[in-house]
Write a protein that binds this DNA or RNA. Sequence first.
DNA 1: CATCCCTTTACGGTTTTCCGTAAGGAAGTC
DNA 2: GACTTCCTTACGGAAAACCGTAAAGGGATG
Lengths: 222, 222
Amino acid sequence: MFQKVLIVDDIDFNDVAAVSVLEALAVPQIDFAKYCDDALLKLKRGYLDHAPYDLLITDLSFKADHRTNQLTSGEALIEAVKGLFPEIKIIAFSIEDKSYRIKSLFDHLGINGFVMKGRNTIIELRKAVEAVANHDATYLPADLQYIFQNKLVNEIDDYDIQLLDYLSKGVSQEAMESVLKQAGITPNSKSTIEKRISKLKIYFKALNTTHLVSITKDLGLI
Amino acid sequence: MFQKVLIVDDIDFNDVAAVSVLEALAVPQIDFAKYCDDALLKLKRGYLDHAPYDLLITDLSFKADHRTNQLTSGEALIEAVKGLFPEIKIIAFSIEDKSYRIKSLFDHLGINGFVMKGRNTIIELRKAVEAVANHDATYLPADLQYIFQNKLVNEIDDYDIQLLDYLSKGVSQEAMESVLKQAGITPNSKSTIEKRISKLKIYFKALNTTHLVSITKDLGLI
DNA sequence: CATCCCTTTACGGTTTTCCGTAAGGAAGTC
DNA sequence: GACTTCCTTACGGAAAACCGTAAAGGGATG
């Protein structure tokens, strides 16, 4: 079992329950952080003190407040941590069931486990920690494993997401061509852009571009 | 102080912390429900047993799962409870800081307090329960009181919300006229609709309709 | 290097949105 | 009743989005 665990979550309520789960698993040292920046500092401190953390459990979404932070999301934190301490195990922990975001955590950030906050978080978190500790494998609850078969998250690529993101930020199709060129994204002709958006509309059964953005926002793609 | 409190939240993690707050306030009986339907049943049971609850603390958003429920949101639960047991105090409890939704809880549903899940939930919940117990008044944390001065939630009316909602569902401006007529909503001329949408775009600094819907979705207006 | 296949690009016409101007209508004031 | 004011409706031209067709480019294959 893990010896030193850091829990990162901005909602204090969650710490109370998380600590009870870890105590039940006989984890000797459990620390907390409410901000991603603080979390990274603690991880560095542990490393410098020759007492590194061996498990990081982090939320994905953090509320903004008066403090200005470098890292503002769990994704950013995980990326930074993976860069500095590739050895540490990471379990992400979120209320979101947006499959695209979860899949990308495994695919791009290489997390070891994912737990969805819901009606069985206590049991799920326990299972996830045990699985990551013992089998050295990745843990994903049975009810979320569909995301790797799900056609949606496989058929929609990064280019599509980028396009949808620009659309949601108010970039017109007219202006999209030069925006993509600026950003160094290809293809970027007006014609291809039109065709992609049109394909997305068919895919998501959207009646128009506004509808398309609304749908994909609900799905958590953007 | 309250004698019998019901906590309704679908995330089991929150119960652990909530109960510790209430125990610290010496509440003798604390019950839980993970579904709104169950919550209503427990409240009815209490009433029939001549041991009614005197405080309801409820989340607003509930995840859908295999169960089919009558009440699927905190708002629906609060409305039902207010109808059956007007005497009971209600504190809503949510991760959302969407001012429009919170304001409407006070204005339309008459809740007694609101607590936002965040970095100080434990203290805030305690304060809210004490305030509602003692002063018989409504409790809203200082950092949220701006919502009642906030021009946004006062200047945007139900008609605007309706319009934005239809737009997000893919209704074109072209079709909006007849859709509004079908729904019995006035004014419904193409011209007025155009003007309203245009006003909203200026208000929210949106570059086009898609951007407008994206912004207002982020704000929680729709 | 010719061929096929697929993606990207170009173009043109139709529809929808956008935006300004102006007319119509209801309520309130003097 | 004339006038002002505010809201709604009507209309028309410009811009953008939409949609189909066709040409150009870029790999892979034989």
